[in-house]
């Protein structure tokens, strides 16, 4: 299938002697939501950082919109990155700026919108993540879940083509989890964006995913629709999605 906006081809990555990615092959279809699941510490965040060029593979290719980004210089990489929005696992808000300025940051940097327009968009995005009126609060004055949602507002502020979400619902209450999952699904449906979501919330993943991929021991061991994953015959996949201690995956 030709219409994969992101494609990882045999990507290897080691940190010192730790071989984290051992030949990742993954396709992200344009305009759909792909959810990556896998064990904590397995390398999901590392995969996401490869997609946007924050980490470079030791070997293999990362193809975004038909171009291999692994050999790109800063300027070319910036052109590619302007198509992305990203929510970091720990939100990575600028702690010298208040929440409103954080969300406004990409708008100020990359659009010629007036101050009033930007304020309106910021208020709008903060309302969408369930935090109306927190503009003047500093990141240090927010809870972890609130920071994450401000980070989410920042990631979608420019309405980018591709949005990478690193555990958008971890640390949120069940009602907020559902609201954020709906927001991700709505954003996808309304703007036709491509989303890549890392999640430990299997139920939520079924709700938003067009495709799912499971990372295990440095490789993608299963991909497919949520139904394919649910009905997978692979005992590793079954153990993981059912959250069982017994099985081929070692617990503690």
């Amino acid at each position: 299938m030709a219409d994969n906006i992101i494609e990882l081809i045999d990507v290897h990555k080691s940190f010192k002697d730790q071989h984290v990615l051992q030949g990742i092959n993954l396709q992200v279809p344009r305009g759909q939501t792909t959810v990556i699941i896998g064990r904590s510490g397995g390398g999901k965040s590392v995969i996401l950082k490869h997609m946007i060029g924050l980490l470079k593979p030791d070997s293999g290719q990362v193809v975004v919109a038909g171009q291999d980004i692994t050999g790109m210089d800063d300027h070319q990489l910036n052109q590619v990155r302007k198509r992305f929005g990203m929510l970091f696992q720990e939100a990575a808000l600028f702690d010298s700026m208040d929440s409103g300025e954080n969300v406004a940051f990409p708008l100020r940097e990359h659009t010629k919108k007036t101050h009033a327009e930007i304020q309106r968009i910021v208020a709008d995005k903060l309302r969408m993540v369930g935090l109306p009126g927190v503009e003047r609060k500093l990141p240090s004055q927010l809870s972890g879940g609130m920071r994450k949602r401000v980070g989410l507002a920042r990631a979608i502020a420019l309405e980018p083509e591709i949005i990478l979400y690193d555990e958008p619902t971890t640390g949120l209450d069940p009602i907020m989890c559902d609201a954020i999952n709906r927001l991700i699904a709505d954003t996808q449906a309304r703007l036709g964006v491509t989303s890549v979501v890392i999640s430990h919330d299997i139920a939520g993943a079924y709700q938003i995913a067009h495709r799912m991929a499971m990372l295990y021991e440095g490789r993608i061991i299963a991909t497919g629709t949520p139904d394919d994953i649910k009905n997978s015959s692979d005992p590793v996949v079954q153990q993981f999605i059912q959250g069982k201690q017994e099985g081929p995956i070692e617990g503690i």
């Binding site: 924050l54 910036n78 990203m86 970091f88 808000l93 702690d95």
Partner: peptide, 14 residues
């Protein structure tokens, strides 16, 4: 260490 510098890169700001 809190990935704010990575966030700048991601937002295409050097």
């Amino acid at each position: 260490v809190t990935e704010q510098i990575d966030a700048l890169y991601v937002m295409a700001v050097n």
